[in-house]
Design a protein around this nucleic acid. Sequence first.
RNA 1: CGGAGUGUAGCUCAGCCUGGUAGAGCGCUACGUUCGGGACGUAGAAGUCGCUGGUCCGAAUCCAGUCACUCCGACCA
Length: 505
Amino acid sequence: MAMKTTRKQNYPEWYQNVVSEADMAENSVSPGCMVMKAWGYGLWERIQRVLDDKIKETGHENYYFPMFIPLSFFQKEADHVDGFAKEMAVVTHSRLVNEEGKLKPSSPLEEPLIVRPTSETIIADSFAKWVNSYRDLPILLNQWANVVRWEMRPRLFLRTREFLWQEGHTVHASMQEAEAETVKMLEVYRDFAENALAMPVLVGRKPEHEKFPGAIDTYCIEAMMQDGKALQAGTSHFLGQNFAKSANIKFVNQNNELEYAYTTSWGVSTRLIGGTIMCHADDDGMVVPPHIAPYQVVIVPIIKKPEDTEKVMSYIENLQQRLRAQTAFGEKLRFKIDTRDKASVDKVWEWLRKGAPMVCEIGPRDVDNSGLMVKERIYLNSPEGKKIMPADEFVTTVGRRLEDLQKQMLAKARSRLEANIRTDITTPEAFADYFAHSNEWIEDGKQGKVAFVRGKWCGDTATEEILKAMKITIRCIPFDQSGTTGPCLLTGKDATLDVIYARSY
RNA sequence: CGGAGUGUAGCUCAGCCUGGUAGAGCGCUACGUUCGGGACGUAGAAGUCGCUGGUCCGAAUCCAGUCACUCCGACCA
């Protein structure tokens, strides 16, 4: 066990340990913000690369909008959208003056600027300018950006004041087309979470009280963490004509009539990294899915005597040439040779704690045998996790092996998800009993811990209070509905909607 | 924004009650032995004890004020 705290002992503390031991990020001196370090930011770069390709494949183009949004833009929306979040960074001054050695804000702005918490309003304003005719539609854009929400209880990757994300914004001529777009992008997220992050998710619609304010419908992907809590990993909103009306996005349709357009928005953030950690990491540290690993293979030279240096390094150099030609997941293999002046055992364990999918050790013995030793992260504690093999075999199989390891990670996470959705709870009493316990680590292969319940919900607004008191949320209304009728798990009234109940991050 | 707690070496912390030369472990540096499942020995560098003021011959330690951070709640597009 490399972690000071195991998942079983204290799950939240274990999470913090993984982030710091894997050297992914640390708290910044700037409160509530984080410094993403090479290994953590490298994951984000991989997420960006893979997802950006998919966003472009589906016809979107990247734009960039300002980080500062005039207060009046939020005013427009606040007039008709209730429950608007108030935690925002507000820029009120434009310079600093030195008053007796103390710097003080000066020159108040005529209109305060809000540091974007999300960009619907400012993008809608541009849409209004750009859209005149049905021939201008649709506009399909995306932006990679930082956003700020003044969170009071930050946690690395899961909730920080500043975070990085991607926000797609589209505008369409018809409701059907906008709705289709919303669902299409949700599917892109589902596919990405499962295939790139090896994180299986449930897809569905948010209940009324969990919707994005201003949306007609909010759809989401929900993942299950190893403590049975849910993590909203991505959202996609059908905004109807709400934003079009407040920003005045109108166009002339094919019948020569003036009409409000239909908009959507959808996003995922650096929170996905927190999800990946809580989905895959173990008591030895991080476990990175090979598809998004900044380095899929790390080679650590084992040199005991200085006179072996040249022998080992030229062997590795030769291997490097051959690895450069290899591919995994349809991309060039990403590998690193760790030549730092440190004890090789320490280097090996450092990379295993970081979750590099494969770590190769190469010493004089391997040179003599034309071989190498490879350790696979997900099998760290089993005998088959350490293999001595011919270098030829390694080079020719590494790509396929990484793809295979990725599949195994997904399969493991999927079986945990499926085994921990209770569907046999049908009364409010049984439901209350189930959630009477707090969440804890779902040990691999075990069942019966607190996680998700799939059951009936009557939809009454009064149920919001019951959920709040129980600290439980409705994660989503899954797309696949049974259509049966039964007692609501909160009120006991007749209900037909199937929903997913869980505690959440 | 409520409730509690903590600020001492890069990190984790002891010392404070009962005032008297600034401590430990880890990390770091050098040398040697090591190196393939997480090393060891020897030597060394490193701190305005959060900040300001007060009491005192003397303050990390006592008193007052102040700032910051952490945890638990509330909040969370």
